[in-house]
Design a protein around this nucleic acid. Sequence first.
DNA 1: TATGAATGAGCTTTCATTCAT
DNA 2: AATGAATGAAAGCTCATTCAT
Lengths: 211, 211, 211, 211
Amino acid sequence: MQKKLTEEQQKALLENAISEFGERGLAAATVSSIAERSGISVGVIYKYYENKEALFEACLDASVSLLGDVLRSSVTKENSLEESVRGLIRASQNLAREHPSYFRMYHAITMRPDAKGASGYAERIERISAEIYTELISKAESEGIVRKDASSSMFAFFFDNLLMMLHFSYSCDYYRHRMEIYCGESADEDSFDERLADEMMKFLKGAFGGK
Amino acid sequence: MQKKLTEEQQKALLENAISEFGERGLAAATVSSIAERSGISVGVIYKYYENKEALFEACLDASVSLLGDVLRSSVTKENSLEESVRGLIRASQNLAREHPSYFRMYHAITMRPDAKGASGYAERIERISAEIYTELISKAESEGIVRKDASSSMFAFFFDNLLMMLHFSYSCDYYRHRMEIYCGESADEDSFDERLADEMMKFLKGAFGGK
Amino acid sequence: MQKKLTEEQQKALLENAISEFGERGLAAATVSSIAERSGISVGVIYKYYENKEALFEACLDASVSLLGDVLRSSVTKENSLEESVRGLIRASQNLAREHPSYFRMYHAITMRPDAKGASGYAERIERISAEIYTELISKAESEGIVRKDASSSMFAFFFDNLLMMLHFSYSCDYYRHRMEIYCGESADEDSFDERLADEMMKFLKGAFGGK
Amino acid sequence: MQKKLTEEQQKALLENAISEFGERGLAAATVSSIAERSGISVGVIYKYYENKEALFEACLDASVSLLGDVLRSSVTKENSLEESVRGLIRASQNLAREHPSYFRMYHAITMRPDAKGASGYAERIERISAEIYTELISKAESEGIVRKDASSSMFAFFFDNLLMMLHFSYSCDYYRHRMEIYCGESADEDSFDERLADEMMKFLKGAFGGK
DNA sequence: TATGAATGAGCTTTCATTCAT
DNA sequence: AATGAATGAAAGCTCATTCAT
């Protein structure tokens, strides 16, 4: 017995919970498995979180925060639009390789039918996206690259969709496998990520550049 | 007591199971709820499917088949490339509005970490996509619209990603909400679907047409 | 596995639950112990009763019903007031010896602080007493034995108090022991019950008859 | 951290434990709630009492002592028999209104089926009663009021029963409600207590005076 | 010596699965 | 062959008790 969960243990708890939830989903994850992974007792989890649901929410929070931080930081004022978008893609690839569970958590929410939980998170998560896209659009305008015949909001939607699928493709077994089918077996090599980023930039430039 | 589950009852079972799994996910769905929805007994489900898992797999199979059929049928030889792609988009929108659970099932697959289930399904599903894309590419070639500087496989991947997100956006609460944030609250009006299809076509034409 | 809990098993379940609750009280009683005593599985209890609380309520109902039936039947129209009261005492003694748990259940409710549970039962239980006392009072009036200087409602209260303590004295270990201290070690002999009834009649006659 | 629980803190602990046990019963009461009520830590309770059970026993002891003290003191040598009995009744009413938990504790003992706890307490408690009744009887004899045809031990038993029910009627929700049904809704007014005492005296005088 | 967080056994409840009818 | 009640393993959660500080 220890006097108190150390800072590390608390972090580990959250990290392990994210893994468990990411792997099994809210319903199938078990609190005792999370406790075991974390080397602590079941009971103590309930000292920190009211119940399994609350732990899940905390995991979402943590994931969303981290994702937000990383993605936001790749869109700096110094970079050009093109550099920013490429930075976003590369950061996504790296982050998803390192913390696949964070994205799987994200993926997991989207299954929930309830407006309360799911939609509440939608707001929270999209607020991050919004910040990023606002920045990108101002860049785009200052660089004079704005296709006039397009709905910028829908194009932003498509862009975000592509990014999101990139996240899943790098973090969920299924999507990774699918990506390999499309893009070849070299999916875990490092150069692959560069190549994919290149192609995605081409795709986006064409889409946004218009004719 | 009935002689045997009729064809209709078996179909209803699958349909209801898809709804239940689509709504709650594998873990949270209950066999007895499925039985109840279907107006049959729990016991008989176990005569047709070894266990809950097997029923789930059958639902995946059924969903994938149906989606495949519908999507394939929207890419006919008679149509031009543009007509085919637009057909794919419109069919996806309609199908997802009518049978959201089919897509949610699809979504559910992607949660599974195991190579057995997930990867097996990846093959199965992508075989369908492959057929479609083979057809599309042959159209593209015959129409002389092939951007030469692009990796066609990766561009196909991006295209499929966009389509997939379209599916989710029309079938999962979370993604629908997100789409509304991007594209406005009119998301359930009929004209909205047309408009979105238009914009998506523009996006794709730019991307594939390149400069 | 049986097709269905037989009528006997259902009765046994209730009976055993009454014993368990009577012995340990609501909080300390365990559902699995009740299942074990009854030779059935835990799960099936939840098919018959929504939860432990509901089972407890059902036990109260059953106890109260039985007590009511027995006590009511000992106050028949044919009997005189004196015979009726004595009948009530003797019936109480016998019933409490045979079904101590029924009275312990009764005793158990009285611990509950909530007006909802406890008071609701108070009404239900006292309705039974009310019927009995109404009958007794009409007998008393017809026999011309009514002390005029007394509050009949309060005297009824005292009488019921004495009867209640009689119940507890015959069904709870503590009260039995206490009765033995007062009335001698012969408390479980049969003649003792007769003697006690005699003395109680004397006590009551004095009280009600006045001087 | 304090040096040692002060006298007051120890008393408060006992007092609060009595309240908690009185309100919830042994099983439902929680040690940490008692600690919280008392402004001390859980751990220290285990320095003073081996376990929850032991604390409960100590609470019983304390309750019984207090009740004994108060009741004994209302039967003083100076008072006549009648004054003493009335004093006992009035003291019971007041005490039960002020310290309902003490009586609920007492009530709680009676639930315990074990000879160890329950019977041991019976002895302890009845020793107190014994002292009181010895005093009362000597008064009765000196006043020449002794009904010769009655078993004095059984009559004492009945008398104590009435007193006990009085205690419960003033301290437990259930019994209070029941008393209101019998004696009217005015049960919490002060004059009510007087009236009830009067009637009880009449009842007892009749019973003991006999014809 | 007091603290109060950690422990983990144990309780209630659910539900996949079985099998007597 | 279908039924649906019974089974019982397993989960979430609580709280008496311990012990590092």
